[in-house]
Computed example of a mutant assay.
Amino acid sequence: MDVNLARTFLMVAETGSFIDAGRKMNITQSTVSARIKGLEDLLGRELFERSKYGAELTAAGEQFQKHAMALIRVWQRAQLEVGTSDQHSDHLAVGAPIAFWDGFLLRWVSWMRSNTPDIAVSATSGLSIVLTQRLLEGSLDLAVMYRPTQPPGLMIEHLFDEEFVLVTSAPANQRRTSTDYVFVDWGPDFQKDHAAAYPELTNPGLNLDLGPAGINYLLNNECSGYFPIRLVRSHIARGRLRQPKRARKFIYPVYAVYPEAHNEEAYEPILKSLRQLAKKHA
């Protein structure tokens, strides 16, 4: 299938308009209409409900949307690998939630670049459910995540257990209040466990979906929040943050996830280096 059909479909879905999609893509409305009609003919289903107000996805269109995104990602990966084939013997696409990059996976990428410079590396962050889909569609080679599902075709390997601890930048003699608390969003599992442990903090005044960057807020404001111990250990040692006594801890296993059908000879040194780094966080 022509990848431009998928791109045009996604643009119409985003803008809700054939006219606006054409403007953004610098093509005519008739070209947009022809591409969508051609796509619908290929699939045998209408993808949009047309009206004078614009275009809305049909049930079939909603189903096709994830596949269109996958087609674009696979095409982009093909372009990248072909474009770098004269400089690198292979390419590794790695994904993980943002929490893993700072202090862990970026160190591993640094090792990869120093020890296997002939392998090009692409790194991305995302939710576990999205990363799993990308592993299945073939646009990712390896992912690191908490509590993954295991669809057919994927291997999961335990790396270490991540401990989330409550830390605060407020003075020890200062009484904590709910207004001093910052909810740092570490994903669906953490949201559920946190709500069960702290029902009184389900609607805090500040939510940060910024991952490790949220530490900077604590360092510059007298407040508290949950972070992986590996990210705040140095700040605790220097006295910039402290752990309140008897605070609840949350522990989540961390896994490497990769295709079941993989080149063992090529993957083994990559996985070995990841395991060795993971031991330092165990």
Rank of each mutant, 00 (worst) to 15 (best):
I251L: 10
K245F: 10
K192L: 04
S178H: 07
L154F: 13
A237R: 06
Q150F: 05
L142E: 06
R246N: 12
G205H: 15
C223A: 13
V182L: 11
P199N: 01
R238H: 12
L231K: 03
A197Q: 09
K245C: 09
A172N: 15
P171C: 07
A196D: 08
W186D: 00
A196Y: 12
Y255M: 03
V254W: 01
A196I: 14
Y217L: 05
L210N: 10
L166Y: 00
F164A: 11
L241H: 03
N173W: 08
L142F: 07
Q133E: 08
Q243M: 13
K192D: 06
D189G: 01
R176P: 12
E163V: 13
W186G: 00
S169W: 13
R134F: 00
E162T: 11
Y226V: 04
R248I: 09
E137T: 02
L208K: 14
N220D: 11
L140C: 08
A172K: 15
A195E: 00
F250A: 10
L208H: 15
F227Q: 01
M145H: 08
G187S: 07
K249N: 15
K245M: 07
A237C: 07
L206M: 11
C223G: 05
L140Y: 01
R175W: 04
Y226C: 06
A237Q: 05
D209E: 12
P228N: 10
P152C: 06
P228W: 07
G138R: 09
P253F: 00
P244Y: 06
G187Y: 02
S178A: 15
A197Y: 10
A213I: 13
R240P: 06
P151D: 01
V184A: 01
E200T: 12
N173F: 09
H158K: 13
T179Y: 10
L201N: 03
D209P: 04
L210M: 13
E222D: 08
I251Q: 11
Q174W: 14
I251E: 11
G153W: 10
R134N: 10
S224K: 09
V254F: 01
L201S: 05
L140K: 08
F160K: 07
H235E: 09
N173P: 08
R175Y: 04
I251T: 11
W186E: 00
A195V: 01
L219N: 15
C223D: 07
P253T: 01
L210V: 14
S224N: 12
P188N: 04
P152T: 04
E162R: 05
G205V: 05
P171R: 08
R230Y: 09
Y146G: 04
L201F: 05
Y198C: 03
D189S: 03
R238Y: 10
A213F: 14
Q133P: 01
E200Y: 08
P253C: 03
M155R: 10
V254G: 07
I215W: 06
V165N: 01
P253A: 02
D180C: 14
L231V: 06
L241A: 05
A195I: 01
S169H: 15
A213V: 13
V232F: 05
Q243F: 13
S139G: 14
W186T: 00
R248A: 07
L136Y: 09
Y181C: 05
L219M: 15
Y252M: 08
L166E: 00
L166Q: 01
A247L: 12
S224L: 15
V257P: 00
L166N: 00
K192V: 06
A196L: 09
Y252I: 06
A170P: 07
